[in-house]
Design a protein around this nucleic acid. Structure first.
Length: 411
DNA sequence: TCTGGGGTCCTAGGACCC
DNA sequence: TCTGGGGTCCTAGGACCC
């Protein structure tokens, strides 16, 4: 493979930065963005807050304890997706080869742009300046020969960093780099490798092939390459990405419930969220997965069922979810419920054969259209009305993309 | 008023068919 | 009738990422 030049761009404290940019009152202050109502945690915090010990994942009260002057802001996904879309538009002025890893991280393959813009470093400075100027957002950029190393590099200096890993310096840099710095090696993998006396990328890269494959199977070979800083995966533009593989929603309830009627009402709501999104993607699925977390938080189970036919209508999803629920005896009140549709197939437009099915389809489409225009759950099944719970996600799924059909649930 | 929500990929074991 | 192997589909669960 030819030598490539890849940028990884990581927006610093993205949600918090967008909020501070939109509201001057918040600038320079410790703020935390939360997902909204109910039992929630801090999604992002500003660097002012991080300095005081506020961390992502903390409960709100916990954040307030370590930083009493912390300002809580309820997130507004529309602002974030809009900003991200514009920023990714800027990226594409420097190369068409842009891959969004998440709403605030992208890779750019600038190999073929270097002759136009001079150098990758130059591109990085231009992007930094424009994003800072237009949106008041700082970013950390890593430049390296591949995605793995570019991501590692962008992580090395935060906030507002620019780190370059030259191909010649890779082995020196990795020699003493802790393995857990690599994207893909999490807590469990770190512990397992540590047990084998592997602590640094250097050690991982030199480790015996057979020893790694014996322990990790196919992953073993990949781990070794990661330790050596090798990664041939291409920067995938949106159009080259594969189809979605699952559509799911889950929700922590505002309080634990054990009333079967209430649980079912919530399942219907989740079914509608999953179904409407599946229909918007124009996919349907054969496998329905139900997930339940109990009140104690630690115990949970998931169960799935595979049907003969592909479905995407809310009430059919609901029926399948309930049929799963009916096979189990709940052991505790329920804290969280989730439904995921799997085993998807892309649909081509096709009208059902029978009159009553056609009517149902048209009714569903009318409902989806109204909901798209006036906000989720404006129109929904009758049995949802008594429920106090509001639907609609306040969190941006990682499958969100600045363009294309994966742009979901932003209201 | 402790601890969110959306995904992908991989493995292991059982059922079933050829 | 007995024995074995390979492939596919399904379920359950875990690790990892943002």
């Amino acid at each position: 493979m030819d030598r490539r030049t890849i940028l990884h761009i990581d927006m610093n404290a993205f949600f918090a930065s967008v909020e501070q940019s939109a509201n001057p009152e918040l600038r320079g202050k410790p703020i935390a963005v939360v997902g909204g109502h109910g039992r929630t945690v801090i999604t992002t915090s500003s660097y002012e807050a991080r300095g005081k010990g506020v961390k992502t994942g903390m409960a709100v009260w916990e954040g307030k304890r370590v930083c009493p002057e912390l300002i809580i802001v309820v997130g507004d996904n529309k602002k974030y997706t809009h900003t991200s879309t514009m920023i990714n538009g800027i990226f594409r002025e420097y190369t068409p080869e842009v891959e969004s890893f998440s709403i605030d991280e992208s890779w750019l393959d600038v190999t073929h742009s270097l002759s136009i813009f001079g150098s990758a470093e130059n591109i990085a400075y231009l992007i930094k300046a424009r994003i800072r100027h237009l949106f008041g957002i700082r970013c950390s950029i890593g430049i390296a020969p591949n995605k793995l190393l570019a991501k590692l590099a962008s992580d090395m200096q935060k906030p507002d960093g620019l780190t370059i890993i030259e191909p010649e310096t890779v082995s020196t840099l990795l020699e003493n780099m802790p393995i857990e710095k690599l994207c893909g090696i999490g807590r469990k993998m770190q512990r397992r490798l540590n047990m084998m006396s592997i602590y640094t990328c250097g050690e991982l890269g030199r480790c015996d092939d057979s020893r790694l494959t014996r322990k990790f199977g196919i992953t073993g070979a990949r781990l070794k390459r990661m330790g050596q800083g090798i990664d041939n995966s291409p920067v995938l533009q949106f159009a080259d990405e594969g189809d979605v593989k699952s559509v799911g929603h889950s929700r922590t309830l505002e309080r634990d419930i054990d009333d079967p009627a209430e649980i079912r009402r919530f399942l219907l709501q989740l079914s509608e969220m999953v179904g409407s999104r599946a229909r918007r993607y124009n996919v349907s699925g054969r496998t329905i997965h139900l997930y339940v977390r109990y009140a104690d938080f630690f115990s949970s189970w998931g169960k799935q069922t595979t049907l003969k036919n592909h479905i995407n209508l809310s009430d059919e999803i609901y029926k399948a979810a309930v049929s799963i629920l009916d096979t189990v005896e709940l052991e505790q009140p329920v804290r969280l419920l989730g439904i995921t549709l799997n085993n998807l197939k892309q649909l081509e437009e096709q009208l059902p054969l029978f009159e009553d099915e056609r009517k149902k389809l048209f009714a569903t489409q009318a409902m989806d259209t109204i909901n798209d225009r006036f906000g989720k759950m404006a129109v929904t099944f009758g049995s949802l009305i008594p429920g106090k719970e509001k639907a609609g996600s306040h969190v941006i799924p990682p499958s969100w993309r600045p363009d294309g059909m994966k742009n979901v649930d932003v209201q």
